[in-house]
């Protein structure tokens, strides 16, 4: 039996800055909580293809698993948590500057 589809967001690195970005309904954001949550597999695949075609803006787009809490996406894997929050050795990086 195929595995049930779990909620996803499209994420990538920004071409110029190299930092982590997430796809929204009409563009990109640096905040995971603003990302568009994709709950339909076909829709998610389509959105990923659209993102991957933006070669002069983003690098390495992929679908990342999320859970939805209070209507907002949150990471389900620690790798995505670090991508969203920045390095854990001490608070620095673009994510800190966004706060």
């Amino acid at each position: 039996m195929p595995k049930a589809f779990t909620p996803k967001v499209v994420t990538a690195n920004h071409l110029l800055a190299g930092d982590v970005i997430y796809q929204t309904a009409d563009g990109w954001t640096r905040k995971l909580e603003e990302a568009e949550v994709l709950t339909d597999e076909a829709d998610a695949d389509l959105r990923l293809i659209e993102a991957s075609q933006q070669v002069d803006e983003v690098v390495g787009a992929y679908l990342a698993d999320v859970a939805v809490e209070d209507g907002k996406p949150v990471p389900t894997h620690f790798r995505e948590e670090f991508r969203a929050k920045g390095p854990s050795n001490y608070a620095h990086g673009k994510q800190v500057e966004l706060q």
């Binding site: 690195n13 800055a17 190299g18 930092d19 982590v20 670090f82 390095p87 990086g93």
Partner: peptide, 8 residues
């Protein structure tokens, strides 16, 4: 030049 987790 690499592209890492948070930046180049």
């Amino acid at each position: 030049l690499y592209l890492q987790l948070h930046a180049y």
